[in-house]
């Protein structure tokens, strides 16, 4: 039982789910506005690198977080210009930016830190110790000592869920993703709304990246996001383009990941349990969900379609 629902596995689940959830939340915001941003992976990666870079150069954690988020914003801004203003193909632009982020961070990592690795003395995001939970079995070990970013993520989920479905600006953002022409007619600035949404997605993904580098690892390594941004997209889809759903999906995926570690080498009926196959669950579930075999995930109606204002 310990390997299935022990405090260690649950704590690992939360650790593994957090960056995925942040990327997924970014995906929810941008796709709800009608822009597909597969550069979330790249936004995470620049967040992870520039967080460490700024932490090294300034020695200040707030500065590191600010620079990381600015890096995510910068990459997202490039996507916004390409996708919204130039109505470029959003997938190609996203792929290009992912490659750019990988090339840029690996290039700088090689030029700056190749001989030494990133410095071990940089300021890290502190954990939140919940002393009163120490005596509580399982729960205390699972949530009693998580990074501050985990709690921030939870707050963002609640905020975004209320924002998108209970406020007027949230309704406007969704209307832009469902029916931009109608939204335009009602006086909503489609392009502006989409710009803000894409920028927000970049910031959220970058926060996920910083969590990986300045909270979990304490350092940067090439391509350290390793597809987490894409799992985030999967979580967004599986979570039906809602913040709460995205969080739930991220936790499910994170649990699968945590199991693939805790079940390593465990034998079932004489066979070594194929833990690697557990890692395919997010991708298979996502395909099944979009295909309508597991629930039904419907994307925003105008998702991925560039919007031309009147008179074409």
């Amino acid at each position: 039982m310990e390997v299935l629902i022990g405090a260690g596995v649950l704590a690992a689940t939360i650790r593994l789910a957090t960056p995925v959830a942040l990327a997924a939340l970014g995906g929810v915001v941008t796709e709800r506005s009608g822009v597909v941003n597969i550069a979330l992976e790249g936004c995470m990666l620049v967040g992870a690198f520039f967080g460490v870079f700024a932490a090294d150069k300034t020695g200040s954690l707030p500065a590191a977080l600010a620079v990381a988020i600015l890096a995510g914003l910068a990459l997202a801004a490039m996507h916004a210009v390409a996708a919204i203003t130039f109505r470029a193909d959003q997938i190609v632009s996203g792929m290009a930016l992912n490659i750019l982020a990988l090339g840029l961070t690996s290039y700088l990592d090689y030029q700056l830190y190749s001989s030494t690795g990133t410095p071990p003395t940089i300021p890290l995001v502190p954990n939140v110790h919940l002393g009163f939970l120490e005596k509580v079995p399982v729960l205390g070990g699972a949530v009693g000592d998580q990074s501050a970013i985990v709690w921030v993520t939870l707050a963002i989920v609640v905020f975004l869920q209320l924002f998108l479905f209970r406020t007027v600006p949230g309704l406007r953002l969704r209307s832009v993703g469902e029916h931009p022409r109608a939204a335009d007619t009602l006086g909503i600035d489609v392009r502006r709304t989409r710009y803000w949404a894409v920028l927000a997605s970049g910031a959220l993904a970058a926060l996920g990246g910083v969590y990986l580098s300045l909270s979990v690892a304490g350092s940067f390594s090439d391509n350290m996001t390793n597809g987490k941004g894409f799992i985030g997209l999967a979580a967004m889809i599986f979570g039906r383009w809602t913040p709460l759903g995205a969080l739930g999906a991220a936790l499910v995926f994170g649990y699968g990941d945590a199991l693939s570690v805790s079940l390593q080498g465990v034998e079932v009926a004489g066979f070594v349990f194929p833990v690697q196959l557990l890692s395919t669950i997010p991708y298979l579930l996502t395909i099944l969900a979009v295909a309508g075999f597991v629930g039904r995930s419907r994307m925003p109606a105008a998702d991925g379609q560039p919007y031309e204002s009147e008179g074409h």
């Binding site: 390409a82 193909d89 632009s93 792929m95 290009a96 490659i99 990988l102 090339g103 840029l104 290039y107």
Partner: peptide, 16 residues
């Protein structure tokens, strides 16, 4: 990795 940067820029231009 300079090569990846160049490749990304090529793609980005073509994207439009």
């Amino acid at each position: 990795h300079l090569v990846e940067i160049v490749e990304a820029l090529v793609l980005f231009v073509i994207a439009a």
